[in-house]
């Protein structure tokens, strides 16, 4: 009887492990299927030092872009409420 209860607990632990694994896989799938990027969503973490090194060596450009503006207070509030990588 004692041995039967022991097996039962082990099985429960195993079942729990399977469920947790399934949950993790499901979350990963949901995350990967999310629409990739919509308005105001995107910015990326980059290797800043690599970019600066390449700019210094002339392999990349330091040219200032057109079509941008400093972040306004309203946009900052929206960004805080919204997205980041």
């Amino acid at each position: 009887m004692h041995q039967l209860r022991h097996i039962h607990e082990r099985e429960l632990r195993f079942l729990g492990l399977v469920l947790i694994t399934g949950l993790v896989i499901a979350l990963q799938l949901v995350d990967s299927l999310r629409p990739l990027g919509l308005s105001g969503s995107g910015w990326r973490v980059i290797d800043r030092q690599a970019v600066e090194r390449r700019i210094e060596s002339g392999e990349l450009s330091d040219r200032e872009a057109s079509w941008y503006h400093p972040l306004s207070n309203d946009e900052a509030r929206a960004a805080r409420a919204g997205s980041a990588p």
Binding site: S39, W43, S66, W67, A78
Partner: peptide, 18 residues
């Protein structure tokens, strides 16, 4: 931080980001 106006994404890009 800056807001890019080039494409419909309108990325809000912090200092040091792309």
């Amino acid at each position: 931080a800056v807001t890019c106006e080039l494409c419909p994404r309108g990325c809000v890009i912090p200092e040091g980001g792309a």
